Amino acid sequence: MRDIMHFSNRNSESMPFGGKTIVFGGDFRQILPVIPKGRRQDIVNATINASYIWDHCQVLKLTKNMRLQAAHTSVDRAGLGDFAEWILKVEDGAIGNKTDGLYACTIKIPDDILIREWHDPIKAIVDHTYAEYINDPSNDNHLEKVAVLAPTLQIVDDINDYMMSLSSNDIETFLSSDTVSKSKFQNDFIASIHTPEFINTIKCSGVPNHVLKLKVGIPIMLLRNIDHSAGLSNGTRMVVTKLGKRVIKAKILPGTSMGQKFFIPRMTLTLSDHRIPFKFQRRQFPIMVSYGMTINKSQGQSLSRVGLLLKNHVFCHGQLYVAITRVTSRSGLKIVVAHDHKEDECVDDTHNVVYKEVFRNVS
Rank of each mutant, 00 (worst) to 15 (best):
V34F: 09
V314P: 13
I335S: 02
I95F: 08
A94Q: 14
T256N: 06
Y162S: 10
I218V: 11
G307N: 08
T73S: 05
I95G: 03
G79R: 06
G217L: 03
S14Q: 11
C105A: 13
S257P: 14
I35G: 01
M66V: 14
H119V: 07
D82F: 10
V306C: 06
F198K: 07
Q260H: 14
M238D: 02
E117C: 12
T241K: 07
P265Y: 15
L68K: 09
T268S: 14
K245S: 15
I252Y: 10
C204P: 01
L310S: 04
K61H: 09
D111T: 12
I22A: 07
V306G: 03
L333Y: 01
V59M: 08
I159M: 08
K108M: 02
H341Y: 09
D82E: 15
Q299T: 14
S168Q: 15
T106S: 03
G19K: 00
N169T: 12
R224P: 03
G25D: 08
T106Q: 14
D273Y: 05
V239Q: 03
I95Y: 11
N11P: 00
I193L: 13
I171K: 15
V126S: 04
L80A: 09
E132L: 15
W86V: 14
N139R: 09
D127Y: 02
G93N: 01
V90S: 01
T350S: 06
V59K: 10
V207E: 04
D170H: 08
R67W: 07
E117L: 02
D188N: 10
S229Y: 02
S177P: 01
I155W: 04
I202Y: 15
D111A: 04
K334G: 00
I248R: 04
K108G: 06
E345H: 11
K61T: 09
N97F: 12
L62H: 04
C57Y: 01
N312L: 04
I115N: 00
D55F: 15
A78E: 14
V90A: 09
N296S: 08
